[in-house]
């Protein structure tokens, strides 16, 4: 029992602690590719600390929805983070929810963020909310189908079991094709869900293009800090999903200190590598028009569908 609580606590610390680093790393990679020096990888920590201490300005039009949303967003994202095995394959909270529960936990945060965007009453917030509602709803089918494809190849939709089986090479070696296709689909979905480049540009404040930034435009002070932190945690959750479902190598399977340390290091390396990939992608790909989104997500859906089809075909 005590060990489990320690594990949960450790996982929480990892998710909370690593997430700003990932954002900083992506920014750094982008800066390098644009021939800039860029701020330090640890700049987001300093930013968070600073924003936490600032005075919060609360728009007078808003209701309690506006002030409660950051906490709900933070809580639901962190809860999702506790469901994903990061460095240890048997998270004690694994029973609390499978990957679908994780998706819906994140959706809870999105729902409240959409409401908060509407609450301020300016056109920007409404615009962001309306677009976020579109993105959130059309990514769902591709996400669920790719989850199902993963569930088929691993024989479970429980994250612990998936990671465990993949880590021990059970079930995956026989058919790489469905697994690869599902990876492609889930990667596109992750980009859309976390508001990365082909879908949304986290570095912009241009009203024509912004989605996530538009929703949180009226936040400041500690509320902004919580929302930003939650956004980076969401990114980390998706990165952890991708690396640990498809490449859980090095993850601790036994609860020994050595294995855990190794798992932690491997986790950091893998997540950083994926963050670098995203950074490179953001520099090379142009942002899509909002209404071209359906093509991207249509492609993700087809990838996931093909993953399912290939699974059954190769199963014989």
């Amino acid at each position: 029992m005590f060990g489990n609580i320690c594990l949960i606590f450790l996982q929480m610390v990892v998710i909370l602690g690593v997430s700003p680093f990932v954002v900083g790393l992506i920014r750094k990679v982008k800066a390098w590719l644009q021939c800039r020096k860029g701020p330090s990888v640890f700049q987001p920590y300093a930013d968070l600390r600073k924003i936490f201490c600032k005075e919060a300005v609360i728009p007078s039009t808003t209701s309690w929805i506006f002030t409660i949303t950051p906490y709900i967003l933070f809580g639901s994202t962190l809860a999702a983070g506790l469901l994903v095995p990061a460095f240890f394959a048997d998270m004690p909270l694994g029973f609390a929810g499978n990957i679908i529960a994780l998706v819906y936990l994140l959706a809870l945060g999105t729902f409240f963020l959409i409401l908060a965007g509407l609450d301020a009453g300016s056109a920007f917030g409404g615009m962001g909310s309306s677009r976020e509602a579109l993105v959130a709803s059309v990514t769902e089918p591709a996400m669920i189908l790719s989850i199902f494809a993963i569930g088929l190849t691993a024989g479970s939709t429980n994250l612990n079991t998936i990671v465990h089986r993949t880590a021990l090479f059970q079930g995956v070696t026989t058919d790489p094709a469905p697994h690869l296709l599902a990876l492609g689909a889930l990667f596109i979905v992750a980009l859309a869900e976390t508001g990365r480049v082909p879908v949304d540009n986290p570095a912009t404040h241009l009203e024509l293009t912004m989605i996530h930034e538009a929703m949180i435009l009226d936040y400041s002070g500690r509320y902004l800090a919580l929302v930003e932190w939650a956004a980076s945690m969401k990114l980390l959750v998706f990165l952890s999903l991708l690396v640990n479902i498809f490449a859980p190598w090095g993850i601790a399977v036994e609860a020994t200190a050595g294995a855990m340390t190794l798992g932690l290091v491997a986790y950091l390396v893998k997540v950083s590598a994926l963050a670098v990939v995203i950074g490179i992608l953001e520099c090379t790909v142009a942002k899509l028009r909002l209404f071209r989104l359906s093509e991207l997500l249509g492609a993700a859906f087809i990838l996931a569908l093909l993953a399912v089809i290939f699974f059954y075909m190769f199963r014989g």
Partner: peptide
């Protein structure tokens, strides 16, 4: 349009199967 084309082709794939 392209999303519909993709979906139709997905349907064709299932039919072929």
């Amino acid at each position: 349009n392209i999303p519909s084309s993709l979906l139709i082709c997905g349907g064709l794939m299932i039919l072929a199967l």
